[in-house]
Amino acid sequence: MAYKSIFSVLTDEALIKPTLDHAIALATRLDAHVDALCLGVDRSQTGYYYAGASAAVLQETISRAQTEAEAIEAAARAVFGPSEIRWSAESGVAQLADLARHVATRARFSDLAVLPQPYGTDRGAELEPIVEAALFEGGVPVLVLPNDVAPNPAPKRILLGWNESSEALAAARAALPFLTQAEAVHVVVIDPPTHGPSRSDPGGMLSQYLSRHGVRCEIDVLSKTLPRISDVISRHAADIDADMIVMGAYGHSRFREAILGGATRYMLEQAKLPVLMAH
């Protein structure tokens, strides 16, 4: 498998260049095509008017979103222009509650979505549902980019989180184009179960599977010495000087993670490295 169709959604002019720089670097290395969906987001309530609002007011919000979409598309084309890759950019307007349909329709026909980190200072409310729409409705792996990380289309050292879940296995398979070219892949197992078929060799079957693809991997078994799994992963990534983290996304329900937290939620909030996620 190779990434030949890379997809991104742009809704914030401040995030256009850093997001597209990563996508262009990947496309240049992999000889891939980049499709950018430039959305102006209408954040008005759907299904009814605000109290005292008129149709003219609502039309104004749509017109403003259309203007934003056109500005985002123009900025994206300016970033794409000097590159030598194959690319396309289209603009449109979507209401906040209807983002998933627009994102999923295009994401499902791509190999990888490249999206900005959805949480942080000055991040719009639309970024989280865009990531989730790509993962769930689009069924595509997502490379989530934190702030101020230089493009690295060929990460040399990768941390792969492994807990024997179907989500973690989906992430490992989706990340094979990165894993096969890495110098070292650390399969990280945290507090493996004391009872189970893999208790004597945690991560062994995954490592065997990856090695048959030519992946140079080793297994790191860690104790949960910090309150959250995401903290252990982040600390170990720093210890091994990792360039990327690969992990399954939303082993629990999205609602539970939104209310109680979870590894996916915390990684999306706090990651300092690009994180490739799949569900």
Results as ranks from 00 to 15, higher is better:
A171I: 03
L127V: 05
Q66K: 14
Q208D: 11
D201V: 11
A271W: 05
P192D: 01
V215W: 09
I190S: 07
D21R: 07
G81H: 12
R123W: 13
P129T: 11
M1V: 06
R212F: 08
F178M: 02
V246H: 01
P141C: 12
V114R: 01
R101E: 13
Q95V: 07
H279S: 04
P192W: 06
V215Q: 05
L176F: 08
A278V: 00
K17R: 15
A55S: 11
M247E: 00
A65Q: 05
V131G: 00
A113K: 06
G138Q: 05
A107S: 04
G81S: 14
A238Y: 05
A53Q: 06
T61S: 14
P153H: 11
P153L: 06
E269T: 14
S223Q: 15
A69R: 01
G81A: 15
Q95G: 15
G47H: 11
I190C: 03
S253A: 06
A133T: 06
H279Q: 09
S5R: 15
K156L: 11
V187K: 07
F136L: 14
V188D: 00
S63F: 01
L206Q: 05
I62F: 06
G52T: 04
I219K: 10
G204M: 06
V187M: 12
F136C: 04
L30E: 09
K4C: 00
D241E: 14
L169T: 14
G40N: 00
R101Y: 12
L159E: 04
A100T: 08
L159T: 10
P146D: 03
F7Q: 04
S54G: 15
D220R: 14
I229G: 02
H213W: 13
A71D: 13
V103G: 05
T67K: 13
H252K: 15
Q208W: 11
P151N: 01
E167L: 02
V93H: 01
G47F: 12
E128T: 11
R86S: 15
A242L: 09
E13C: 05
F136Q: 08
R77F: 02
V131A: 07
T19L: 01
A174D: 07
R173E: 02
E137V: 07
L276G: 01
V41M: 01
R254E: 03
L160K: 01
T121H: 14
D231H: 09
S63T: 13
E218V: 12
T225A: 13
I24A: 02
R173A: 03
D42F: 10
V114G: 03
G161P: 04
A174S: 15
V187T: 11
I16S: 00
T28G: 06
A65T: 08
A278E: 00
S83K: 06
G251Q: 10
I245A: 02
T180V: 15
E60R: 12
G161S: 15
A242P: 06
E90L: 12
A237E: 08
V215K: 12
A150G: 02
S5V: 10
